[in-house]
Design a protein around this nucleic acid. Structure first.
Lengths: 222, 222
DNA sequence: TATATCATCGAACGTTCGTTCGAATCGGTT
DNA sequence: AACCGATTCGAACGAACGTTCGATGATATA
């Protein structure tokens, strides 16, 4: 972890991973050839295989490294904070901050989650489950504290991750608000939505819920 | 559009598109070979090319068909409704309902958005821009009506689409709440988050926003 | 300077892929 | 039965891919 303790090998590996992640993020995992990575790193095709033993393992190394850091940072950040709302707020902040600061790797983690298989998939997926569980447990705790019983916690949890993980599809550090603003907006959107004013739900949102659902059964249905 | 007016050719084309979409959704576009689609449709490799002239056009036909329907259904549904909050609610309902009922095609639309290029990409992207614009304008209108001036509308818009489009990563019609419940939860989460109780934002969320941001600058940064 | 380990390389192998093309088959009309 | 357009097919091509292997260069230790 500490940057000054990295061996030559480790530095080179990180360089390869970062370069590969950038290309994966741009063209997608399957459209990227090892030859693309060789060109970008100025290494030979076979020289790359000194650092990973298959293309799939290369993807794994990127995803695992990335996920491990997010979770570790998150745990460190939450340590000693007991208020679940505050904890959730820190989780969101950490997630978004890391996401924006490591957009390539996080895009590869989010978008290529199913491009990996077998044991390597299981390994990454276990980390993901831990992380999602952490968030879901927080929401359950908050729901208990605030007596929120009309919200499906699983839907709420993945709605939150949807808001956060979707940003690789649109966020541009150049044109958009900065990370602090992004974090603030999403935190406010989600949290005041979750804790939300019940009046808004019942009075404004209850009207005519069933009347038009059959409309979007499309030609796909035959 | 009307099912009874479809020619033999059209029916067959829809069959090919639906089958292809199912495989694209499961294995991903680039990992799916035309041979996979031939096997699933029980057609020959070359026989498929009677219905599309390249693999990329096949992807385009799926995405375009799908997007066109979502937008048309949405427009029809919103026609005559003037209250922007109600309009937004209908947009969300239509989107989620169509998404769940056509999960394969919508996953291909969401997840393979960048697997297409050139003019075909532009065509799909124009539709997307129209649709996003429709939602964003609605949010702007609502923000004006309710004097909401502390939210970045672009962030809010894509947060909404993030909540909605992310569902292909987790939603299971078998285990999860039904579409109506999904729709209700997401509508309530987003809308009461957007209109939200300002007290929640300022009192509970303002604490210590800057204090720990440097924590998640990781090893990726070198 | 000799030696061992680390790091890199060029060249090639076998496989899979998207696409093409001319021929065959089908269904309906004369 | 003869015909014609619509539809399907088998076989093949060239290109690109992931991976391997033996050899070569670099670096540090003795």
């Amino acid at each position: 972890m500490p940057a000054e303790a990295q061996s030559k090998y480790d530095q080179r590996l990180v360089f390869v991973l970062k370069t590969a992640a950038a290309i994966f993020a741009e063209k997608g995992y399957h459209s990227t050839s090892i030859r693309d990575i060789a060109r970008a790193t100025k290494m030979s095709l076979s020289g790359l295989y000194y650092y990973f033993k298959s293309k799939e393992e290369l993807l794994f190394l990127i995803q695992d490294y990335c996920f491990t850091t997010v979770i570790d940072d998150c745990r460190r950040l939450l340590a000693g904070v007991s208020d679940p709302v505050h904890r959730l707020k820190l989780l969101i902040e950490n997630h978004l901050n890391y996401f924006v600061q490591n957009m390539n790797e996080m895009k590869v983690l989010s978008h290529e989650a199913n491009a990996i298989s077998g044991d390597l998939f299981k390994k990454v997926n276990n980390k993901k489950r831990q992380y999602v569980d952490l968030a879901m447990k927080l929401l359950e705790e908050i729901a208990r504290d605030y007596r929120i019983n009309d919200l499906d916690i699983r839907v709420a949890t993945f709605s939150l991750f949807g808001m956060m993980n979707w940003i690789y599809n649109w966020y541009s550090p150049r044109k958009d608000v900065d990370v602090a603003g992004l974090s603030q907006t999403i935190t406010r959107l989600f949290l005041s939505g979750f804790l939300g004013d019940k009046r808004i739900q019942t009075e404004q949102l209850e009207t005519g819920r069933e009347s038009h659902l059959e409309r979007s059964v499309s030609i796909w249905q035959q």
